[in-house]
Design a protein around this nucleic acid. Sequence first.
DNA 1: TGAATCAAGATTGTCGACGATTTTCGCGCG
DNA 2: CGCGCGAAAATCGTCGACAATCTTGATTCA
Lengths: 219, 219
Amino acid sequence: MTDAAVVSDDETTERPDLTQVIREAILDAQFAPHQRLIEADLSERYGASRASVRTALLNLAGEGLVERLPNRGARVRAITVDEAIEIVEVRIGLETLCARKAAENLTPTDADELRALRAEIEAAIGSADLMAYSRLNQELDRRIRDLSRHGTATQLLERLRAQSARHQFRLAFHPGRAATSAPEHIAIIDAILAKDPDAAEAATSAHLSGIVEVLHRME
Amino acid sequence: MTDAAVVSDDETTERPDLTQVIREAILDAQFAPHQRLIEADLSERYGASRASVRTALLNLAGEGLVERLPNRGARVRAITVDEAIEIVEVRIGLETLCARKAAENLTPTDADELRALRAEIEAAIGSADLMAYSRLNQELDRRIRDLSRHGTATQLLERLRAQSARHQFRLAFHPGRAATSAPEHIAIIDAILAKDPDAAEAATSAHLSGIVEVLHRME
DNA sequence: TGAATCAAGATTGTCGACGATTTTCGCGCG
DNA sequence: CGCGCGAAAATCGTCGACAATCTTGATTCA
């Protein structure tokens, strides 16, 4: 299935940063929430020294993906529903800011790309392809962050997204969720395309407030 | 186990976490922005092994206080004025959220403490004690964060505050700044005391927007 | 003179080992 | 039978040494 015989025993191929490898393992749910990440185990599993594993775990702790209990090691950080709600509440502040800036900064080229993205989203909705729709939502969020050219907000949003990846994923398949959020996403896109910061902020705020509501009911 | 005569030369006293020591050194401006933090130097300076220093630097990198350039070591992260503006823009979103929650959660006991704090602030203004006023501003921000009981927002605000400590400090002594911001702070307190989330959000937003303005002019 | 090259120095990255701390588990005592 | 107690295991924290990498400065050649 893979394209070459490089996977197995030989480690001579360039190895990507351990931090990234473990980060993706966590986001891929190869490690469960609250699972202990024992340095010696990871060390053997990835063929690196304990010091390297340690460095990676320190990095991931800084990103909020793992917790480090003094003298008791690291474990995958588990986000409760309450925390997921807090995260979305914070996202309201950050994403409305980005939406505002995106509307202000929009260039004709950006507008074309955004229109293309809108078309894709509408197509995904039309064919009821939840998986594609979920992916496009993420893509839209990322696109708006980029357009905002606001490094600080972008960085914090990226952190929060990683931390709540599991919850975001669950939410995407919540019954009836797509039908509600789709027009909200379209509204956000249109407000940005219209270069209307106030409308972009309002549409973003409305969308995320809806998510907070849903999460509260799930609690 | 007497605790006398242990302070001077002997290192047998419990040592506070190196991360905290170096963090405070950075915030105290013992290390200048962009100054390189060489592991061997810090190791000798604080009488710890290089591994411990390394751990501390990784922690501080996670907090955004130092930058780590691959294979080229760590240095104190320098915040430009543009970044300082971005940080305040983000604070608008986060602190309005906290002010809102604080107004909603306020208990009679909290209200008493808040009134005491207001009295202190008014006293500092009356005596034109800029140093005390600056300290009380920080205290007020912290108090509102606590009252909000919003862990996620609190954590992010704490990070941002540390990163922009230098700029916040400079701003506090900007000519005429105290006269402008004092009534804004009082307005925020009163809105929270009135348990009026909308007013608290508006007052906080107005205050921080003013700071953004000033920073823009300083640029 | 000036650019390319390469050697020496400085600094970080990685490693295996040892010591410290926490957890686990068996054992005796009430 | 349960509860404390202590030894053993598991695991993290620290250390010194070495390897890899980047930087600096001298040297050579056109």
